[in-house]
Design a protein around this nucleic acid. Structure first.
Length: 581
RNA sequence: GCCCUUGUAGUUCAAUGGAUAGAACGAGGCUCUUCUAAGGCCUUGAUGUAGGUUCGAUUCCUACCAAGGGCACCA
């Protein structure tokens, strides 16, 4: 529709002997100001030496001569400083409702990424450490972006990258060795994993405050690498399996299914090979710059030579161990190998990793420019909470599991007066809890920090995930009633009134497209709230299912369209929309 | 010190260079013998400071102020 209006304006301008390169057409923020709006008169007024308002009137007069051929357009008006507003017709909205019914859950799809292979890495919790709400944040964003890109036609692979070796594992094993109770196998997988997380916190604390413990932890670390100690090997195998499986349990509830797992220990030798192949290699000869060079017995990359905003980072330590940066080189290569023909490799992390990711990216651009061009880093803000910084090294960490169960309890409390089977009740409480948490993360743009507020994140009112689910469930309940009363959806049985919710529904595809181009789920979250609000208002002011009402079939059709849009939109946020709640 | 984020109602967040800066929470009032009140309706309140570009700036540029993060062997 937008293109049609643009062409219409172009033709009108041509009639007035005005040529323009591009016409900005937008949806006014306020529905009273029309469905589409252009500022073209304001933009070109100066060039054609005219007053914007008069020019707008002139353009509108010309537009009106041809607009009769377009039954979708009801009215064109000049408003404000010289805006031209287009009001769409009753027929247009009815047609858009019909279109949504035809598309069903395919609504909002586009094909800008059709044929593209995209890999997206997110979540990345480390075995032996707690899965905390920071991981929940990365998971929510990554999963949502993955689904949005798939809705734009991309072939998406989900990837998880995890630190299976390193000091954190040694700390956890130290904590376990010092406290047998934390190794108890009689608990559920989830509780065992929580104990391992506790052991990590204890080991970490000991490492900071006790020099003997630090030496012991270093010993353990060596033994983990060379696998020389049977007892440690046993604990390692159990701890690795237990924490990894506990993560899987959580992914199931969260609605994530990874296609590939990469482990740091496996990436290290691949990265080391790349570093060694490029050691002292001179590139960009006139300036005799090198990629990797030796400095203080370590192998480093002096990125500031290429970009003054970057800095030097160590890739291989003086002890010969590869750092995160080197493993990242290996990981990048592995990703492209795993998925031949990969067009885009996305990584989602907190923004504290931004600067060194840039250094790594610079190194890759020198080694393999083709890969670097296909990489994209989505950074999100830090999850912080009232009362200080959260750290899994201390025990003031909120784990994903504990947060979920707290929210679930509140949901169950709220559901006591509704009738459900036990299994159904469990499933719905999971879905609503996940929705409360994910929505509180996804409703804001990904750049900034999130101040974590327990009360707020579990809110079921207003601007929340459960509000969206509730709106969807209510709509479904109406559809059930309509079915019982044998009122079929009929997109042609409309009356004169145009409901606000109709004016929102047809924009869904544009919102998905924008979210997909900018990797920003919050556009969808905000849009869905608007739709839900408009629907709830419609619901409150209209009797939808009614034998006496000749337009009831249309209202039912509209309600169907709302469920398709909300359910599909929630899916793109990684949230399930239950039929009842 | 240098680099990167971010500064919007009391609070948490929106606003593809546009019109009267939107929500939600909070506070106050109304609303369920019609389809789920986790709802609806009404009232209340904000662009860090100083310049610049522009017909028009929350948005772009510069400086300053404030918060957070990063800057060599942790990830």
């Amino acid at each position: 529709m937008g293109d049609k209006i643009k062409n219409l304006i172009k033709d009108a301008l041509k009639n007035l002997d005005i040529e323009v390169a591009d016409i900005a057409l937008e949806h006014p923020a306020d529905l009273k100001m029309g469905d589409y709006s252009t500022n073209i008169a304001l933009v070109i007024a100066k060039d054609v030496k005219s007053n914007p308002k008069e020019l707008a009137e002139k353009i509108v007069a010309t537009l009106r001569q041809t607009v009769g051929e377009f039954p979708e357009i009801q009215e064109i008006q000049v408003a404000g400083a010289g805006f031209i507003n287009f009001y769409l017709s009753r027929k247009f909205f009815a047609r858009s409702v019909e279109e949504i019914l035809n598309q069903g859950y395919n609504i909002g799809k586009n094909d800008v990424l059709t044929g593209k292979k995209i890999m997206i890495e997110y979540t990345d919790p480390n075995p032996f450490k707690p899965f905390h709400i920071g991981h929940l944040m990365t998971n929510a964003i990554g999963e949502s972006v993955a689904r949005i890109l798939a809705h734009s036609g991309a072939e998406v692979s989900r990837v998880n990258y995890q630190g299976d070796v390193g000091l954190h594992v040694a700390k956890a094993i130290y904590g376990l060795l010092k406290n047998d109770k934390l190794q108890d196998k009689k608990w559920t997988r989830t509780l065992q994993a929580a104990n391992i997380g506790r052991a990590y916190a204890k080991g970490s604390e000991a490492c900071e405050n006790n020099s003997e413990a630090k030496i012991e932890i270093d010993e353990i670390n060596k033994k983990i690498y060379d696998k020389s100690d049977k007892k440690i090997n046993e604990i390692y195998d159990w701890g690795f399996k237990t924490t990894m499986e506990a993560f899987e349990d959580l992914y199931k509830i969260l609605g994530t299914k990874f296609d590939f797992y990469f482990l740091e220990s496996q990436m290290a030798p691949i990265g080391e090979r790349i570093v060694k192949d490029n050691l002292d290699k001179v590139i960009d000869a006139p300036h005799s710059k090198m990629i990797f060079e030796e400095s203080d017995n370590a192998i480093v990359f002096k990125a500031e030579k290429y970009d003054p905003k970057l800095h030097t980072r160590v890739f291989i330590t003086s002890k010969g161990l590869s750092t995160y940066e080197t493993k990242e080189l290996g990981l990048t290569e592995e990703k492209f190998k795993t998925k031949p023909g990969l067009n885009l490799s996305i990584i989602v992390t907190a923004n504290e990793q931004m600067d060194y990711m840039k250094v790594v990216a610079k190194a890759i651009s020198l080694i393999n420019p083709e890969h670097e061009k296909k990489m994209f880093h989505i950074t999100h803000g830090m999850m912080r909470f009232v009362g200080g910084k959260m750290s899994s090294r201390k025990e003031n960490v909120i784990t994903g599991e504990s947060l979920l169960s707290d929210v679930r309890d509140l949901v169950l409390e709220k559901m006591t007066d509704r009738e459900f089977g036990n299994e159904e009740r469990e499933k719905i409480s999971d879905d609503v809890a996940v929705s409360a948490i994910k929505y509180s993360i996804l409703k804001q743009s990904t750049g900034g920090d999130i101040v974590y507020d327990f009360e707020r994140s579990i809110s079921f009112e207003g601007d929340s995930g459960p509000y969206l689910q509730y709106s969807h469930a209510r709509a479904n309940s109406i559809l059930e009633k309509a079915q019982k009363e044998n009122i079929l959806p009929d997109p042609h049985a409309f009356g004169v009134e145009i409901f606000e919710v109709e004016k929102l529904l047809y924009k869904f595809g544009e919102v998905v497209l924008r979210a997909s181009k900018e990797y920003e789920p919050h556009y969808i979250a905000n849009y869905l709230i608007e739709v839900a609000r408009a629907f709830n208002s419609f619901y409150g002011n209209n009797l939808i299912v009614s034998k006496e009402d000749k337009t009831s079939g249309y209202k039912v059709a509209l309600t169907y369209a709302v469920t398709f849009v909300i359910k599909t939109g929630l899916h793109l946020l990684g949230i399930v929309a239950p039929k009842k709640m």
